[in-house]
Each structure stands twice: as C-alpha cells, then as structure tokens.
Design a protein around this nucleic acid. Structure first.
Lengths: 240, 240
DNA sequence: TAGTGGTCTAGACCACATA
DNA sequence: ATGTGGTCTAGACCACTAG
C-alpha cells in the first residue's frame, strides 16, 4: 500500500556531512575529522562513514588525500580550475585565461533570470560582464547574474582587486560555493553587442552557453550567459 | 629508488572482468555470474568482487539490478538511448529522432580520419551519412566514419532494414560495443553541403560536434561529424 | 613513528525480484 | 522460498604523509 522510503545509514551520514558543509563547520580547503572520529561522532562503523565520504568525493564536495586526510573541496585549488570552463584550445595545452571585467551593475531581475534563480520578480540581482582572453585574444564574453541578497558588497573594484578564479572569490568572500552546474549550448550569430567585444564581424558563428549553477541543496545561485569564439578553441565534453 | 606500481586486488579483478567482456564471454544484455560465484572463481572475497563491479557499473560497462543480478550494458536498452546524443528540445520532453540514411560508402581513409582511428593511411573506411529528424524536421546531419575491417557486411540495405539505435546494430551485428566517447563542439556557419539537407540558408549558425568513440581498451573505432541545428534544440551538459 | 586513508576479509542481516 | 544485490560491522593489515 504505502511506499516505504528506505534510506540506508550511509546516506543519512552523507546528509549530515553535507549539512555540516553547508553550515560552514568545515570551510573550503580545510581538513575534516578523520573517518574514525566521524564514526564515533555518528555512532556508526568506519566503513559506513567511508561510504558516505566516497559518495561526497565522487560529487567533488570532498577531496581525499591518502596519508593526509579528507579536505573540503575548494575553487581556489589549481586542480579544479577547468572543471566548469570547458573551452580548450584546438592545439596545445590548456592555458589560464586572463579575465577583464567590463562592468558590474545592480538592477531588478528580468523575469527569465528571476525564474531561473527562484527569486521574486523585481528582486535585485548583480550583473557582471567580463571578457576572457587567451594570449591577449578575447575569446569568451560572459554575462553573470547573481542574487543581490547573497552578494551584498560585490562591486567592480572588488572584482578588479581580486586575482584568481571568480568562483574562488564568491566562495571565500561571500561563503557561497558552487557545486554543480548544468549548461545548454547553442550556435548563434554574433550580434551588435558581442561582435565588437570579441573583435569579430556581426554574424560570426558563436557558441552560446547558458549555465545555471547551484550550491548545496541544489539551490540555483548563478545564471551565466557565455558567448564563445570557437575559431581556435572548442567546447570539450566526455561521454561515459 | 624504483617506483613500485601497486595494483590492488579489486583492480586486477576489474581487469579480468573487462577481459571477459571484451572476449564476449558474456554478451550485451546478458546476466553475468553472481558476486559469490565470481568470488570463488577468482579466489577472493565477495567484497572485493563487489568493489570491482561497482567500478564497472560506474563506467556503464555493467548494470546492477537489485534482486535480479548484474547485466552487461547494452545499447539496445531504452534507458541509455540518450547517453551519447546530447541534443534536447528547448521546450518539452526529449523525443526519439527518426533516422534517415542518405548513403553508405566504402573508401580509403583520409589522413585525419586514419589518424583518429589509428589506421594505416589508405586503409578502407565505411562512411555513413544520415539525417536525424524530430517530428519531421531535419535537425542533425551526421557523417560517421568506421574502420572497414571491423564492419565488413555493413551496407545501406543493412542500415535501412534495421530499426533502433545505430550503436545497437553495431553491437549486435558486428560485436563492437562503444563504451566511451569524447566530443569537441564548435560553432560554424552552414556550408553548401549541409544547408539544403537541414533546410536552412548557407551561413546559418550550426553546432559542429566531432566525436571519437572507443570500445574496450580505449581503442577508437568511430569518428563522427555532426551538424546540429539549434534553433529549437540545445546541447545539454551537466558539470559536476 | 604516528596518524591517515586504502584494501581485504568474513559474516550477519536487509531489500528486492521471481517463481 | 530462494537467490540476488545492498548494507553494516569489526578487525587486520598495507600504503602514504609528515614530523
């Protein structure tokens, strides 16, 4: 008759760990307690804690390092720099792009943005526009929409003062950590806005990448529109 | 001094299982022996077999079904139909595309194709061209390159006689199973070849998707060029 | 040398599917 | 009722890191 929702112990432990991460008990880059300690704390065996941590490591919430311990994943790490940016050069090794901020404004959310961010219509959002350049060549134009409430002090000065990945800044300065994203990719013709910034003629084919990023609990906290120039780059994807 | 390459037991078991899959001891869709039987056969504990199977299930080589057993993954399943085709409608639920074959020829591999398929220059390849249509609207044009040696009897008649996914045919009729692929996506303008087939004007922005698929042992066995019309569809991707 | 995660085992019991 | 995978435990030992 009724559907019993059976939840194994290790999943409950996983949820409690996610909760602690969400609360900030252990912050990005920090060491979490050893498996043995956590087992005691939750009153389960080490193997059960292990399985919970395995799941979180597979989801890139935690990082295991043999002999050292288990750490909270961070966008400041060099490793995960290219986890979200899938653009790669057609030839040669991936390079770190330079980020040039164009502007940063606060305004009332347009309807589609409000819907994607689960905000009430008219709530304040921050819009950042920036260019990513590879070897001085502008290659990606991005328009980044964030809920105003979560990023109060965010400004152009703040962005320019900061070196390193944007998600690192959002994580360190505002305590919002992106853990998942879904992207929709389309081919479009460069419009009057994009063309000059990317130094191409209007009509040039571009990838339009719409990303929605979420933090703990699948709460969407970023909408990003990216126009990718793919003359010498491509969007890389692995299918497993 | 010397770097010892330590390989845990469960990984060795995994390799032996992959070997059996490769050999065809268990074929796609079939049930493999129970964990207990395999443990006996390899002289290890059930837990070790379990960990090996877990890894293969994570890689989509095997499929676990509680209470029933563990099965060899197959491209004939309805489940994995959209595992490789990432195109989704902007609105509404994904639909099964209709496949219309344009032609199927055998010729000597062009250099880039030969390199990608690790063939000697001049070896025979099969080229299939087809259109995928959603609700009668041509949306994807594909050019599929396969090593001639592996697909001897493949012909236009054979393709037209078959209903179901192409990878299902290749798996069932030729014993070649695709297990992994990497894709490179670019934005391009429709050319004189593509435009009429997709019923768009030359210059229309299209996604160009270049896929290289591999079978067991990371042996590349397919190069596929796809031109995706993304006016009402998008290429979907999840970032974790 | 001590502490951490990584591997492996053996056994008990649970959830699920099928006959 | 039986057999399968799924969970959980307890304990031993190995590999890696750092002081």
């Amino acid at each position: 008759m009724s559907t019993v929702t059976f939840s194994p112990l290790y999943r409950q432990i996983r949820e409690r760990l996610v909760h602690s991460l969400h609360e900030g008990e252990w912050r990005p880059g920090e060491l979490i307690p050893s498996e043995g300690e956590l087992a005691q704390r939750y009153g389960v065996s080490q193997g059960t804690v292990r399985k919970a941590i395995d799941a979180l490591a597979a989801d890139n919430l935690l990082v295991r390092r043999q002999g050292r311990g288990t750490f909270v994943a961070s966008h400041q790490e060099q490793l995960a720099q290219f986890r979200f940016l899938r653009l790669r050069p057609d030839e040669g090794d991936p390079r770190q792009p330079a980020s040039r901020f164009i502007d940063c404004r606060r305004l009332r959310a347009p309807v589609e943005i409000a819907r994607a961010l689960q905000l009430k219509p008219g709530e304040t959002v921050v819009v950042i526009r920036r260019l990513l350049e590879f070897d001085g060549a502008p290659t990606v134009l991005e328009e980044i929409w964030l809920p105003g409430v979560l990023f109060r002090g965010l400004s152009a000065e703040r962005l320019n003062a900061y070196t390193g990945p944007l998600y690192g800044l959002l994580e360190t300065e505002f305590g919002v950590r992106m853990i998942r994203a879904s992207e929709r990719v389309k081919a479009v013709a460069a419009g009057a806005d994009e063309a000059p910034l990317l130094r191409v003629d209007p009509g040039e084919p571009l990838l339009l990448v719409v990303r929605i990023s979420s933090t703990y609990g699948d709460r969407p906290v970023e909408v990003r529109h990216g126009w990718y120039l793919t003359r010498e780059h491509h969007y890389a994807n692995e299918l497993n």
